[in-house]
Amino acid sequence: MPTGSPRLRTQDGKLNQVATTLKERRKALKLTQDNLCGRLAEVTQGRWTPQWRDIVRIERGTRIVSDLEVIALCRVLDCSLIELLDTQILFQTTEN
């Protein structure tokens, strides 16, 4: 039986709201997931060194993204927080 409060999810069940926009923006900039990881490590001066698998999970919406990670992603992808967060998406709560 699950414990704790249900996780807040997007209407399509994702754990983060940046998934779709992140993937679209990364591809528009012609960055591979590995390239993105390298740039994130540079921008954060090595404080966040994600692996490509982390980016895959974020893009699929199966990984929660912290506010600090969102800021780093915006810097690398050269976009605003509002653009990356795509505030048009509605939320729903579901139990895990």
Rank of each mutant, 00 (worst) to 15 (best):
R53K: 14
Q92I: 10
A19M: 01
P2W: 12
L22M: 08
S5D: 14
V43R: 06
R47M: 12
V76H: 01
I58N: 01
V76Q: 03
A41D: 06
L15K: 03
W48G: 04
I71P: 03
R53E: 14
G4F: 07
C37H: 00
I71R: 13
L68N: 11
R25E: 05
G46D: 09
D34R: 14
D78P: 02
K23F: 05
L15Q: 03
R47Y: 13
D34C: 08
Q88V: 04
I89T: 08
Q45I: 09
K27T: 09
Q11L: 08
C37G: 00
L90K: 12
S66T: 13
S80I: 08
I71K: 12
E83T: 09
L31W: 05
R63G: 02
E24L: 10
Q92T: 13
L77W: 04
T21L: 10
A28P: 00
G4S: 06
W48K: 12
D12T: 06
E59G: 03
I82K: 14
L73P: 01
Q11T: 04
K14R: 14
I58G: 01
P6T: 07
V18E: 02
I58D: 00
K14N: 06
G38S: 03
Q17W: 08
V70K: 08
L29M: 15
S5A: 14
R7Y: 08
C79E: 05
G38H: 02
V70Y: 04
Q51I: 13
W52N: 12
A28V: 03
I82R: 13
A28T: 04
D86A: 06
G38I: 03
C79H: 07
S66F: 13
G46I: 08
K27Y: 13
R26A: 00
G4V: 05
T87G: 07
R47E: 15
D12L: 05
Q51W: 13
F91T: 02
W48M: 11
R57I: 00
L90C: 07
I89K: 08
I89H: 03
I58C: 05
E42N: 14
N16D: 02
F91V: 04
R57A: 11
I71M: 14
L36K: 01
M1N: 12
C74K: 01
T32I: 05
E59W: 01
R75L: 09
L84C: 07
D78V: 06
V70N: 04
E24P: 00
T21D: 11
L8Y: 04
G4C: 08
C79Q: 06
N35V: 00
I89N: 02
R47C: 09
W48C: 07
L90A: 10
D12N: 08
R25C: 05
V76D: 01
L8E: 06
R39Y: 07
N16L: 03
S66G: 10
N96Q: 15
E95R: 14
T10A: 07
